[in-house]
Amino acid sequence: MPESFLRLLRTREAGLLGLNLLLLAAIAPFFPAFLRPGSLAGLLDDTALLILLALGEMLVLLTRGVDLSIAANLAFTGMVVALLDQYHPGLGLAPVLILSVLMGAALGAVNGLLVWRLRIPSIVVTLGTLSIYRGAVYLASGGRWVNSNQMSPQFLAFVRLQLGGVSMLSWIAIACAVLVALFLRRSVRGRDLYAAGNNPSAALYAGIDVGVMQFSAFLIAGAIAGLCGYLWVSRYAVAYTDVASGFELQVIAACVIGGVSISGGVGSVAGVVLGALFLGIIKNALPLVGVSPFFQMAVSGVVITGAVLINARGTQASALRILERRPA
C-alpha cells in the first residue's frame, strides 16, 4: 500500500468515517431496512440542514470565533421569507432564495462588523444578536404561525424535488460542502482563513487582515444560515418564533465531533460532514431501536459529551509537560 494511503487511514476523518460505518453496521443486522437506499437518502435529507449550518459555523470557529446566533438568524430569515411567500405567492421562488441568502448575510455581517471593527469577543456579540434576532421573529410575525396551507406550492416543492433519488435539500448540502471545501483548500482567501485562526500575530505579519477574515467568516456563516432559514421552513412546512431554538449548540457539537478546534485554525469539511452525519445517524436510529423519545436527548448528551472527551484525548500532547503548549 502506498505511504500516502496509510497516512490517510490515520487521520481523524478516517476514524470518524470508520465510526459512522461501525454504527451503520451495528444497526444493519437488526434493521436491514435502515440501509436501503431510500432510507439512507432520507437520513441525508434529515441531516442536510445540520451539515449546512455546521459548514458555516466551521468557518467562524476556524478564525477563533463562535457564532451562537445562526439558529436565530435561520428563524428570522425563515419567517420573513415565509411571510413574503404568504402575501405575494405569485412572486415565484427566485426572490425567496435571493432574499434568504442576502438577509442571512446581512445579519451575519452585523456580527462580523462588531467583531471586526469593535473587537468585541464573538461569543458576547452573538449572544446579544441571538436574543435580538429571536425576538425579531416575534416582532415580524406578531407571534403568528405560518402554516403549510398558507405557503405557495412552489415554496414547498423546491426542497422536495427528487434528483437521482436524492432530495434537492441534500443536493444543496452536497454542493455547499464542495464549494466550502474548494474555497478552503484552493483559494488564497481560504488559506488565509486558516492562517488567521491558527496564529493571528503571524498572520498579521504575513499581510493577512485578521479582522477581515473574521468578518468574511461571519458573513458566509450568516448567508448559509439565511438560506437554511428558507430550507428549514419549507422542509418542515411551518414557520413560528421558536423554529430551531437551541439548534446552534447541536451545530457546534457537530463541528467539534468533526474535529474542528474551538481555539481556531484546525478543521476540515470532510470532518464536519462526518460529524454531522454521526449525530444524524444516532438521531435516526434511536427511535428504530425502540428508545423512547424522552430518552433521546439524554442519549445524545452522552454521545456528544463522550465524543468531545475522546476528541480532547486525541489532540492532547504528552502528559509529562511542564508548560502548556499554546493551542495550535
Binding site: V66, I123, L249, I252, A253, V256, I262, S263, F295, Q296, M297, A298, V299, S300, G301, V302, I304, T305, A307, V308, L309, N311, A312, R313, Q316
Partner: peptide, 19 residues
C-alpha cells in the same frame, strides 16, 4: 478530560436536561 469548557458544557447541557 482537558475539554475546552464551552464544548464540555454544551455536551453536559444536553446530558443534564436529557436525563
Amino acid at each position: 478530560g482537558r475539554v475546552p469548557s464551552i464544548v464540555a458544557t454544551i455536551g453536559t447541557m444536553t446530558l443534564f436536561r436529557g436525563i
